[in-house]
Simulated scan of single mutants.
Amino acid sequence: MKKSSNRPKLLPLAICGSLTVFPVFGTLGGTVPGGTTPKTLFAFIPDVAEVPIAQDTSEPRELPLIDPNAEDPVDLEPQDWVDFEPQGVESASEDLKFEQVMEGAMSKNLSRRPLSEIISLVAEQFIGTPYVAGLLDKSPNETLVISLAGFDCVLFIETVLAIARGIAVRDYTYLGFSDRVEQQRYRDGKLTDYCSRLHYFSDWIDDNSKRGLLQNITPSLGGIPLNKTLNFMTEHRQSYPQLADDGNYNCIRQVEAKLKNVPLTYIPQDKISTLYDRLQPGDIIATATDIEGLDVSHTGLVYQSQDGKMGFIHASPSGQVTVSPDLQSYVQAVEGQIGIIVARPLDTRPERPDTLPSF
């Protein structure tokens, strides 16, 4: 097993409380064309802070016990599967959080659950985690940066999915977790440079679908075409520090040109509730937007509350990871959101425990 010195660096909360995987979700640094002052995406969706959140999910549910006598063939001790190299109080706290989630998953035999349930339980463990944007782009050189102390909306999804997939295959190592983050975040699963990052979420869905990690189920749900040209990044070049480099700029232009071949469909906001019986916990939700040149303005996961209602768990720009109790109501409450795109994570385990009863 590789030593902790080879693992991605966990930056202190004071520097990196969260990550921005896609710049359009976080702070747009610099100036936009025309000499205006720097903007954030909130300028395009000003009512985001007014979205209601659930009051009955402020604390995560305990990881469910499947069978106290069942054997889960894991013979690793905590010190064997979590490497510690504290870099300050915040970093040590993040390591502890990772350890706690994995210990809970091991002790409760969570690996024997369907992937959708694992995703839901992992997501709940981060309720209340702060929303902080813009930190993936702090370094001029593209590096794999991971934080459990705070998220933007896409970082929340990537973190939850990476941890859940590790639990599903009984890989409780931090190295395995970081490898899965890289696999999801970059084209063909490999970090090479700034342009290898999947900046547009429709590109993120398409690339991860090609590698069998998820399926875009929007067309099968009755999605209608989203006729847009994706060019938000190059049209706002001065808002992205890395695009000052001509190589990065030209590469992103090529990416945008190729995205013309990726079909975009979405479910209109007033049709969302009609599909509740076809959604499942852990489905990835991306909110389609009417912002010119942009496909998606926010992301999260389907959350089924204990009373059966279909909500939305997400890293909310209003402050923290939270649960909005009704998915359709949430989408309709935010200006600029016109509907949803739905992607379903695929369970790639050779033997999937789909027959286990739900918790």
Rank of each mutant, 00 (worst) to 15 (best):
V302G: 01
S316G: 10
E59A: 09
L65K: 11
L10W: 14
G282Q: 00
S305W: 01
G212F: 09
N261T: 08
V21E: 06
I205A: 13
P38D: 11
S324Y: 08
I118M: 00
V302I: 12
L221W: 08
L264P: 05
I313H: 09
L356T: 02
Q100G: 04
V342K: 04
A286I: 10
L76K: 13
D246H: 06
I313L: 11
Q242I: 03
Q238I: 05
R165A: 02
P140L: 08
V24L: 08
M233Y: 15
T36W: 07
I127A: 12
M310K: 09
R165M: 06
A149C: 10
D283K: 11
A257W: 08
M1C: 06
H236N: 13
T36M: 10
K190C: 04
L214S: 04
E62K: 15
S5R: 13
R344L: 14
K3Q: 12
E90L: 03
E117V: 00
N248M: 03
L230P: 06
E124H: 07
T159D: 15
H298Y: 08
D67M: 14
K2N: 11
V145R: 06
G29D: 12
K228Q: 00
M1F: 06
G282W: 03
D290A: 13
I127V: 15
G212P: 07
T192C: 10
V82F: 01
S107D: 14
A92K: 07
R352V: 12
L155C: 02
T37P: 02
K258E: 14
E94S: 00
Q238V: 05
V160D: 01
N231Y: 03
E59V: 09
S107C: 07
D245L: 01
E62V: 15
L155S: 03
V331N: 01
F201D: 09
P268R: 15
G319A: 04
R7H: 12
P345E: 13
D245P: 00
Q238P: 03
H236G: 01
D207S: 13
N216K: 03
G104E: 00
R197P: 01
N109G: 11
G17A: 11
D56R: 14
I291F: 00
P52V: 07
L259Q: 14
D283Y: 11
G134F: 12
L135C: 09
F22Q: 13
F42A: 11
S116Q: 11
D83K: 10
D67I: 00
K97W: 11
P60C: 15
L155F: 03
D75P: 02
L279H: 01
P86S: 13
N6D: 12
P33E: 14
V74Y: 10
D277M: 08
R344P: 05
F22W: 09
G26N: 12
Q332V: 04
Q87K: 06
W81P: 01
T40C: 10
Q280N: 05
N141Y: 07
S318Y: 09
S116D: 14
L10C: 00
L198K: 12
I272V: 10
E117I: 07
F126H: 09
L175C: 02
G212H: 06
Q269K: 09
L76M: 15
Q125C: 02
Y240T: 10
P78S: 07
I341H: 01
L136E: 15
Y266P: 08
E103A: 04
